[in-house]
């Protein structure tokens, strides 16, 4: 059971790493905008060139 003496500091160090990562992310502005990224999730990856797109007949009823 004396492994706990080692495990607690290790667990706390891991938690500290997590907190440090969060702080770095926050300082880099990752959490400045909490609304727009939620909307970005619904966009398709559509980096296809325009000319291919034109062939498609897109109407409003199309499903995403």
């Amino acid at each position: 059971m004396s492994v706990v003496y080692i495990m607690i500091p290790i667990a706390l160090c891991l938690a500290a790493l997590g907190v440090a990562a969060f702080i770095i992310a926050a300082k880099n502005g990752q959490f400045d905008d909490l609304d727009t990224p939620a909307l970005r999730a619904i966009f398709d990856d559509d980096e296809t060139p325009p000319d291919i797109k034109k062939e498609k007949n897109i109407t409003k009823e199309d499903d995403i």
Partner: peptide, 16 residues
Amino acid sequence: LHGAGLENYYKIKSAV
């Protein structure tokens, strides 16, 4: 939008 191949705008708009 059509000239630039950005018709997806209308799909997203109706979806949301």
